[in-house]
Design a protein around this nucleic acid. Structure first.
Length: 467
RNA sequence: GGAGAGGUGGCAGAGUGGUUGAAUGCGCCGGUCUCGAAAACCGGUAUUGCCUUCGGGUAAUCGAGGGUUCGAAUCCCUCCCUCUCCGCCA
């Protein structure tokens, strides 16, 4: 959520930000609703102040008079009644006026609140302006010696690339048919070494964050209340993407939602908290199952392990002091962790600077990491795929946007002793089975086997290959 | 699923209709004392909105929402959550 005060001060910044992101939001409507609401509140407050004053002054007198009335003669009673009547008239009139104002405020608030939630965070000035993924800008690429995505797979390896589906089928790693039988399209069953590889790579990534980078390991709910989804910024915009458990329809309890990323629980952990500055930065990592409806993606990437409804992901989250430079440093650092991880797995990748149109509502900046997948892309002249970079990671810098929604604040010297929304960042560490695509395709051998990258071998019983 | 108890400040915990935004204790901050520290003593210590001549003023907030009342942490209703015991169970 953006800061309403800032919106009032510099509405053009938010108009421009929304325009760059291609988000349609009526800033003028917000400003006029806000102005109206504030005017009503000021009026209401004045009346309340008088009401409180009367309650303090006239109230006790009324109490005494009521008591005195019981033992008084008829004439005295009449006098008391008259005074009581007078004392009551003013507060009663105030109460009516206050309630009328209250109704007017209540009529405005839902629309204003909903509009406020939909105002995107303006992109940083150094983010390239663009419409969508096609306008993203490559920052750099990396590949291990001996395998360069820029050259044809066959020329380097001596045989045409097989897709991960072919490899998986040959080695019995994935059972797509039975997955679909049980749970519909975009479902799969990992079997044998497929499941072992999945677990190995997740565990390796998790240990990598905990042991090498000092992140706090966490296991947290993947089924959460709506506030967590709104607070982390996934709702209302991404409501269609989340599975919805309608417990309230059973007559008790409240609705729940399946989280699409570990980010939700890692951030919502500290919802409504004020954190002491010297406890920062908080660095959390979790491995969690992620659920995505993939609404609107019908027909896109239907085959294989690329786009599925359920997967597991190691996620990293940093909550730091509200300082732009500190946020920027963490962003770079968190991307660095992923680069080191991918390099250790010898998976070629590239960094993409996302353009403004690709940032989503929450982010001030976002960098995607795409791994080289030899089995994707168009079919080449020899009938085998040409390969393509495809997204495996996404590193977001949100500044205080998410923490303001979550009511997650910091207090300390840097905030002048007052609570202030913290800054937050998140980045994928590794998502599987998607990562199995480059892992199988890049490390496949001519005989159909797959070489297990060295760091995963301890998690695979010491073996150096599958198949 | 059955029965019961309860949700109050950073924490513990009083408070059943009227200067109670809230006693007391702990914690934290400042001060006195001390060579220094501890102890003791004194003082301070919620959040948010709005207004501001930047001194402050004002309103709201005791799980959430509604109601009664001139006035609600306190009474009534609805909902949510937590805990204990029993049952079931990975």
């Amino acid at each position: 959520m953006i800061d309403l005060k800032q919106l009032r001060d510099e509405p053009d910044r938010y108009r421009e930000g929304a325009r760059k992101k291609g988000v349609d939001v009526d800033i003028d409507r917000i400003l006029s609703l806000d102005e109206r609401r504030r005017a009503l509140m000021t009026e209401q407050e004045t009346l309340r102040a008088e009401q409180n004053k009367l309650a303090k002054e006239a109230g006790p007198r009324m109490g005494r008079l009521s008591g005195e009335r019981k033992g008084a003669d008829a004439e005295r009673q009449a006098a008391i009644d008259a005074e009581l009547h007078e004392l009551r008239a003013r507060p009663a009139a105030l109460k009516d006026s206050i309630q009328i104002l209250e109704k007017e405020i209540l009529a405005i608030s839902p629309e204003l609140d909903a509009l406020l939630l939909s105002v995107p965070q303006p992109p940083d000035a150094d983010v390239p302006v663009g419409k969508g993924a096609e306008d993203n800008v490559q920052i750099r690429t990396w590949h291990a010696d001996g395998f360069d995505p820029a050259k044809p797979f066959k020329a380097q390896r001596g045989f045409p690339a097989r897709t991960h589906m072919e490899i998986a089928k040959r080695l019995g790693l994935v059972d797509f048919e039975r997955g679909v039988k049980m749970a519909g399209s975009r479902s799969y069953v990992l079997t044998g070494d497929g499941m072992r590889l999945h677990q190995a790579v997740l565990r390796y990534a998790f240990d990598f964050m905990v042991e090498r980078n000092g992140f706090t390991p966490v296991s947290a709910p993947v089924v959460v209340r709506e506030e967590c989804m709104v607070g982390t910024g996934f709702f209302p915009a991404g409501r269609d993407q989340a599975y919805h458990i309608e417990e309230s329809k059973r007559g008790s309890g409240h609705d729940l939602f399946l989280t699409g990323t570990g980010e939700v629980a890692l951030m919502a952990l500290h919802q409504d908290e004020i954190i002491d500055e010297d406890r920062l930065p908080l660095r959390y990592t979790t491995v969690s199952t992620c659920f995505r409806r993939e609404a609107g993606a019908a027909g896109k990437d239907t085959a294989g392990l690329y786009r599925v409804h359920q997967f597991d992901k190691v996620e990293q989250v940093v909550i730091c002091r509200p300082d732009e430079q500190e946020s920027r440093r963490w962003h770079a650092t968190m991307i660095g962790y992923v680069e080191a991880l991918l390099q250790s797995l010898r998976l070629p990748y590239r960094l993409l600077q996302c353009c403004t149109g690709d940032l989503g509502v929450k982010n001030a900046d976002m960098v995607d990491i795409e791994c080289w997948m030899p089995g994707r892309g168009d079919e080449g002249p020899d009938g085998s795929p040409t390969g393509a970079y495809s997204e495996t990671h996404s590193a977001s810098r949100l500044y205080d946007f998410q923490c303001r929604r979550l009511n997650l604040r910091v207090r300390g010297e840097s905030t002048g002793g007052k609570p202030a929304p913290a800054h937050s960042l998140n980045n994928t560490v590794l998502a599987s089975p998607r990562i199995l695509i480059p892992l199988l395709e890049v490390h496949q051998n001519e005989d159909g086997s797959v070489t297990i990258p060295e760091p995963l071998r301890p998690y695979m019983g010491g073996r150096d290959r599958v198949g």
